[in-house]
């Protein structure tokens, strides 16, 4: 009798805890989803990139090498120092015009790329410097080998509303190719989703990621992230 009474009390208390927890969670969820920065998921990703006008699809060569060996890039290159506008005014227009020529000279039209791109397309963009590359894996994986010139920008660098320094080195008007470990890895899509909040619309996911890049015999470089030096 006493034992069954105790079990009934435990069950009642459990239901009360579940009820309170769910109520608080739903209220919190409602507040966040009604706010300016609701939770977003990757299922709707890429729609904005696909909607961009064809006239602005061409690109300009990025200068990832400027950051690869030196944390203070030249101001007249495609990258900009942290805290400043990535590509203000005339420089952006000049780059765009340059890009128009570069993009179509070899018959490769980067503006026609789908949201998700193949290894060959990623390599063509990298070789002709038509896009900036972003590695979204763990830093130790990036350190072990990444696409030369790629920035290290995993989604967790954006945690609690922070703006990672690498964002200041990217230009929202240039194509940005994001990759991770291939397969089912979501890291590149997560970073792409967060970059959309900064006005990046020309985002591409290199779906097969670094394993396919290495398998295809394309070059990689090792070493820590030149901007942050790694996780802090």
């Amino acid at each position: 009798m006493g034992r069954s009474c105790g079990a009934r009390a435990v069950l009642g208390q459990s239901l009360a805890i579940v009820g309170v927890g769910l109520t608080v969670a739903l209220a919190h969820s409602w507040v966040v989803q009604a706010s300016e920065r609701p939770i977003r998921l990757t299922s709707g990703l890429g729609a904005r990139s696909a909607e961009r006008p064809a006239a602005t699809r061409s690109t300009t060569p990025p200068a990832p090498a400027a950051i690869a060996g030196d944390s203070a890039p030249e101001p007249d290159q495609a990258t900009a120092p942290p805290g400043s506008d990535p590509m203000p005014g005339d420089a952006a227009q000049d780059s765009l015009e340059q890009g128009l020529g570069t993009g179509f000279d070899n018959g490769f039209d980067p503006g026609a790329l789908a949201f998700e791109i193949s290894t060959e397309e990623a390599h063509a963009l990298w070789q002709d410097e038509l896009a900036m590359f972003v590695d979204t894996r763990l830093h130790r994986e990036y350190e072990g080998g990444h696409i030369p010139g790629a920035f290290w920008l995993p989604a967790d660098l954006f945690s609690r509303g922070r703006t990672p320094e690498a964002v200041n080195f990217l230009d929202p008007d240039f194509p940005v190719v994001l990759y991770c470990g291939g397969g089912d890895c979501d890291a590149s899509k997560n970073t792409a989703l967060l970059l959309e909040n900064y006005g990046f619309t020309r985002l591409h996911i290199f779906t097969d990621g670094i394993p396919a890049w290495i398998e295809a015999g394309h070059p990689t470089e090792a070493g820590p992230d030149p901007i942050t030096g790694g996780p802090r």
């Binding site: 459990s14 969670a25 739903l26 919190h28």
Partner: peptide, 25 residues
């Protein structure tokens, strides 16, 4: 929903365990 439900469950259950209130539940 899970994004908010699991963390709140953890906070509430953790606090109850620390306090020893409704411990068995």
């Amino acid at each position: 929903v899970s994004t908010f439900a699991f963390p709140w469950a953890e906070v509430i259950l953790g606090a109850l365990l620390i306090l020893g209130l409704w411990t068995r539940a």
